[in-house]
Design a binder for these strands. Structure first.
Lengths: 220, 220
DNA sequence: ATGACAATCGCACGTTCGTGGTATATTAAA
DNA sequence: TTTAATATACCACGAACGTGCGATTGTCAT
């Protein structure tokens, strides 16, 4: 499987954090059987790994479970990344809900695999993060795109005119009516009128309400 | 390469939108050589494809370029998805900037390949979308995670107390000071004081400013 | 036990906002 | 050509806000 001479020379350092003894041993063995990779430490909890990371040289890759006793894997990611930003975190878990996937990737994970991945896939994923990729199980990649498409929601159309949108944008920056008027070389009264119309269209009756709505519904 | 009996039976319908004649012919040939796949239509522009889509039966997959004459691929995605939500859009382009990737995936693309992908990869990607996956070139997957980690920015800590955060949350819902006071069974003056302190901590001096900051920096 | 912080409550004053009106010029559609 | 929509401008008044001063109480660590 592995015939990359670079890998064989470098002997990449990998840590494993996994509370299930059996799975930990399996993965550990798998990595150490792979030329060019070495699972130098295997932990049951993030806490143990963190304390060692502060004294020892950090690994290139951490294989990280999410459902752990004590600190969760998600929380762990941030800690690891703070200590060693260059270490790649590869999530290896049973959880595939949007929430966990989203949080893990936001926290800085470099990849996300489900535990049903084959040994080949797991080793391949480690190689992929090492070469700058972002390995994901098929289902996870799909979820990621799902999250994306929900990210930019139906751009609700309240029928704001161009001028009104422009004024809404300025309002969001925190300007008062008078300041907006100055900025656009308009009379205070004109801005006042526009605001009134904006409020009617957005069904609000305060600046705060308009701003909140603007953010929540991507009107900015 | 392809030995999936399901694919051979079904003969999946694929459309191609690509303005480069040479590349269009190449991909067209590639698909038609693949058992179980048929490139039934190849277009130069989104406009042509859209008009045909309104009369003919839509394909299972559209291979879509982004840099097209007339309507861009990104704009096209939304149109296609509106006409036929179940059609998978697979982006095949030279553009790999965050902006385009982000927009395409938000618009509802099911995958994103770079044009330097090998024929095998392209066919593999089509199979992957058909089986519910989300194929991405390695670089693209990496960019996607990059976008994610920038999504949840440094949760700036302004040292708000629990009470202050609570009041900030209520403020965002559009309540007045008096309404917030009622909600929390506090005096108007107490809320007023808390707001003053919030303003100092957030370096703002209006409700609007506080709300904007709350949204922009995820303080909610 | 002293000090720092958080949470609560109070008042006064000037500023800004929200809303009820009215009105004109321009432009685009019917 | 009439109509509708948009952008512009004005006024007045009460409500809400922002900010300057206070103050008391409790908690928690030093």
């Amino acid at each position: 499987m592995i015939k990359n001479s670079e890998l064989e020379k470098e002997n990449f350092n990998i840590w494993l954090i996994e509370d299930n003894l059996h799975f930990r041993r399996t993965i550990n063995g798998l990595i150490n059987q792979t030329p060019g990779m070495k699972c130098s430490n295997a932990f049951e909890t993030c806490e143990e790994a963190i304390s060692l990371m502060e004294t020892e040289f950090p690994p290139q890759v951490i294989l990280l479970d999410i459902g752990l006793p004590g600190m969760t894997g998600i929380e762990g990611i941030e800690k690891f990344k703070k200590i060693s930003p260059s270490t790649h975190i590869l999530i290896l878990t049973i959880y595939d809900d949007n929430e966990k996937v989203f949080d893990a990737l936001c926290a800085g994970a470099s990849g996300y695999l489900l535990k049903d991945s084959s040994p080949d896939k797991i080793i391949g994923a480690i190689e992929e993060v090492l070469s700058g990729g972002a390995p994901m199980s098929m289902q996870i990649a799909h979820k990621v795109l799902e999250i994306f498409s929900n990210l930019k929601p139906k751009k609700n159309d309240y029928g704001l005119t161009d001028r009104e949108s422009e004024i809404l944008k300025l309002m969001v920056t925190g300007l008062t009516k008078q300041q907006i008027a100055d900025q656009l070389f308009l009379s205070f009264h004109t801005v006042n009128t526009h605001l009134k119309n904006i409020y009617v269209k957005l069904h609000v009756n305060t600046k705060s309400g308009a701003i909140t709505k603007a953010f929540k519904e991507n009107l900015i």
